[in-house]
Design a protein around this nucleic acid. Structure first.
Length: 824
DNA sequence: GAGCTCTTCTTACC
DNA sequence: ACTGGTAAGAAGAGCTC
């Protein structure tokens, strides 16, 4: 039976049938029905031929290739056919043999049989099957298509796959065409969260599971409690509760199953308890249990329902744009939703009283509510990134930006008739990692002072625009001088090292130029017609553009080219130096610069003169390079380094004409300083920048010092937070946060990389020399160490700010000038 | 064990 | 190991005297 439907793909998987590869794609039709497509994938890869190989020789090689046979345990792979194509590889025209094989899994062993000396490279046998499929059949994730094909209804084809799949329709694809009008698509989201008595995966029972969607708010528990809310349902045991969980997921039939840290906790825990209780956790639409892909971080995958761990998406793609200092659900949702987690003092479930049970249920439900709301908030971002990068949602939610850049390139190579470069081998990665660092950005040495009337110019997407304008990439790079090539010196420490780049635009530069253009287009569109979707589109292009420079210098990149990265940085230095010179020549005074931005004093110049000057500067810039006014500022403060008399780089505070502060690098913005020091410094900076003098700032400092000495400081304000960056055992230097982490471990709590450890420095009975010997955890009894907080938190935070006014705060605190300023 | 430099470590900037 | 280099600064490690 043949049918035609409108279809949007959400999830991709593949399977073998009679030794051949098939892809199954799960999505929805325009009526919201679940549809699974089954499509054949004819795997192939490329053998690139040496230039000038004769047609006769090529014919001989083809004949040889056709005879290759791989006999495995369960299947035999043959070379099905070969074709000769004119392709490009790294921008150069090549002749290549397209080798079609029976099964993709044998691509590697087949490639290993291609030792002929005329074959200079074998490519695209290392692309993931689904990626290859999307490129080949042009069935991009989350775009609408018209599909025609044969409906499978209890068909024996593919071993009766359609009767196993829990879908409305299963279609064997015959034709795919793009749909011109695009029906709206809003995914059904189901958020979930579990609570357990133990932190260790699977160790204790799961106490409760909450589930939230647009039509559901529920908490499942296997504990008998005297009181419970209406949304709580009690089950006789854990096994029953787990089965109910599976059934609710099936009833809800969501497109996305969303958790927060669920790759690392909730799903592994559920699996472990399901195993323990001999319950089948068949959440996938194919009836399978979650599959855990190994990797640095585990990924829990279900077929047909896209499992998204929002924590992972946020940390790999969005964290740099968040203010939150940890990526905890509480902080992230407070920032983005204006609503945090419910208060609940965690206890073992056997020790909870009636009231605490009610609080616990509410707490658990709230976690799912927050996760649900965050998923709604991030849906446009995941959707757009998935459509632009053309990789499935499951991957998009887990990939890093380097992978996104790479996938964008791979999915866009066809336009340039390019064969994809291979992934570096383990040895190549090792070599790349051992390479010496190249010289990076220039940072101007400022002079510490309080300045008035400033402006900042900066280059828009500087590195990306340099790459595009100067065509810096692997495909255009040459070690040797060639006519018409751009010469860039990427030498370090006064040693010259010249590299060259062709002026013929490479696919890398062209793609990046398109990314920048699209970013501009959608940014403008957002300005006139603001919507979450256009913002997400614009933002996705921005993220890709920003990561492209780092990508070329990244050791794991297929299109790795440090020379291009080093040349980008070298040219950026040249541009910023020239800019500084031009600004100073115009009778402005440059006081600071870092990478792509310059801060300068207006002196007696007007804003109009400055805008005209900017226009003039822009006329002199090549290609797509562009300089913009960041803003005008009323005052700006730069301080000296704590060691030495020079101005500190990457540390300054500005106030604009509306009185808004912009603080960079100062302790105020560093999470490893206590709130007390950070808030005090913030107040001091604000008052100095507002008033233009230090008078009231000194009063604020005085007051704080007095409060510290009188032990009036709230305990929460003296907590120091530091992140664990590696396993406890790997620390060579035992620092305060390591000691704090050890203490937490002794309490039987789990310690993991990435955790932010909280502690304070306490008074000790005996005199202790080291800070780490005075470390206490927030819940430990003990008074804060006055001397430590005065000398190691407060003083360093404000000392060099006050020093700008030639006042020595240290002497004041030490009491050397107590007669003059006795109140200290 | 005071006083110094060097190393390790974290977190910022762009 | 999962974009790059530049920089500040705390605290421990290791040394000398």
């Amino acid at each position: 039976m043949n049918q035609e439907i409108n279809f949007i793909p959400l999830d991709y998987d593949y399977f073998d049938w009679q030794g051949k590869n098939y892809v199954k794609i799960l999505g929805r039709d325009d009526k919201g029905k679940r549809v699974c497509l089954i499509d054949r994938f004819e795997p192939y890869f490329w053998a690139i031929l040496k230039e000038g190989t004769s047609d006769k020789k090529i014919q001989q090689i083809q004949d040889k290739i056709k005879k290759i046979k791989i006999k495995g345990m369960s299947r035999i792979t043959n070379v099905e056919k070969t074709e000769i194509h004119n392709k490009n590889f790294l921008g150069k025209p090549v002749k290549a043999i397209k080798i079609f094989i029976t099964n993709y899994k044998d691509a590697h062993p087949v490639a290993d049989h291609l030792g002929m000396k005329e074959i200079i490279a074998r490519r695209e046998y290392d692309l993931p099957l689904v990626t290859h499929y999307i490129i080949e059949k042009k069935l991009k994730p989350l775009c609408w298509y018209k599909i025609s094909g044969e409906i499978l209804n209890n068909s024996q084809e593919f071993g009766g796959i359609d009767s196993v799949l829990e879908v409305d329709t299963c279609i064997k694809v015959e034709k795919i065409s793009e749909l011109s009008d695009k029906p709206a698509f809003q995914p059904k989201i189901l958020a979930f969260d579990i609570e357990a008595d133990e932190f260790e995966i699977g160790k204790g029972e799961i106490v409760m599971i909450s589930l939230v969607s647009n039509s559901l708010k529920k908490v499942l528990t296997c504990k008998k409690t005297a009181k419970k809310q209406d949304y709580v349902e009690t089950f006789k045991d854990e096994a029953d509760m787990l089965e109910a969980f599976v059934n609710i997921v099936k009833e809800q039939s969501p497109d996305l199953l969303v958790g927060y840290f669920s790759d690392g906790f909730d799903l592994p825990y559920l699996r472990a308890r399901a195993e323990h209780n001999k319950v089948k956790l068949s959440l996938g639409l194919d009836g399978r249990q979650p599959a855990f892909a190994r990797g640095r971080l585990p990924s829990a995958q279900l077929f047909g329902i896209v499992h998204i761990d929002l924590f992972r998406f946020i940390s790999s793609v969005y964290s740099q744009y968040l203010q939150s200092e940890t990526l905890s659900l509480n902080e992230v949702s407070s920032e983005l939703l204006g609503e945090g987690k419910k208060d609940f003092n965690h206890k073992h479930s056997s020790k909870l009283d009636h009231q605490e049970w009610l609080e616990y249920f509410e707490y658990n439900l709230q976690d799912s509510i927050l996760t649900y709301k965050l998923a709604e908030k991030f849906w446009p971002d995941m959707l757009e990134l998935s459509k632009i990068v053309q990789e499935p949602l499951f991957e998009i939610a887990r990939n890093t930006m380097a992978q996104n850049v790479e996938n964008y390139i791979i999915h866009n190579l066809e336009k340039y008739n390019e064969i994809a470069e291979k992934h570096p081998t383990h040895d190549e990665i090792g070599e790349r990692m051992q390479r010496e660092k190249y010289e990076g950005a220039f940072v101007f040495q400022p002079t510490a002072a309080l300045y008035e009337n400033l402006a900042i110019f900066d280059f828009t997407s500087m590195y990306a625009s340099i790459i595009v304008t100067h065509n810096l990439s692997k495909a255009s790079f040459s070690e040797k001088k060639q006519p018409g090539f751009l010469e860039v010196d990427i030498g370090k420490d006064k040693k010259s090292h010249k590299v060259y780049f062709s002026s013929k635009p490479s696919f890398f530069a062209l793609m990046l130029s398109e990314i920048i253009e699209k970013r501009k287009k959608y940014k403008a569109e957002y300005k006139t017609h603001p919507s979450a979707l256009t913002f997400a589109t614009s933002n996705s292009y921005k993220l890709l553009a920003n990561a492209s420079y780092g990508y070329q210098g990244f050791f794991g990149a297929r299109y790795y080219c440090v020379e291009a990265a080093a040349a980008t940085a070298a040219l950026a230095r040249e541009f910023i130096h020239n800019l500084i010179e031009k600004i100073n020549k115009q009778d402005y005074k440059v006081i600071y610069a870092d990478t792509d931005g310059v801060s300068f004093l207006l002196q007696d110049k007007t804003k109009k003169q400055t805008f005209d000057f900017l226009k003039q500067l822009n006329k002199q810039l090549p290609g797509i390079m562009e300089l913009e006014l960041e803003d005008f500022y009323k005052r700006g403060l730069w301080v000296t380094k704590r060691t030495g008399e020079f101005g500190a780089k990457k540390k300054y505070a500005l106030i604009d004409e509306k009185g808004k502060l912009k603080i960079r690098g100062f302790e105020t913005v560093r999470r490893d300083w206590c709130t007390l020091a950070r808030q005090l410094q913030n107040k001091v900076l604000a008052s100095i920048l507002q008033d233009g003098n230090e008078t009231s700032a000194l009063e604020i400092i005085k007051e704080t010092i007095k409060n510290i000495k009188e032990r009036k400081i709230d305990k929460k304000d003296i907590m120091i937070r530091t992140q664990l960056k590696k396993p406890l055992s790997e620390y060579k230097s035992i620092m305060p946060h390591v000691v704090a982490a050890q203490k937490i471990k002794e309490q039987g709590k789990p310690i993991d990389i990435g955790m932010v450890i909280e502690y304070f420095i306490a008074e000790t009975r005996e005199k202790k020399a080291l800070v780490r010997e005075k470390v206490k955890l927030p819940d430990e009894k003990g008074e804060y160490n006055i001397k430590y907080y005065l000398e190691h938190q407060i003083l360093p935070a404000v000392e060099n700010i006050i020093e700008v006014f030639n006042i020595n705060l240290k002497e004041i605190i030490d009491g050397k000038r107590q007669k003059k300023l006795g109140e200290f």
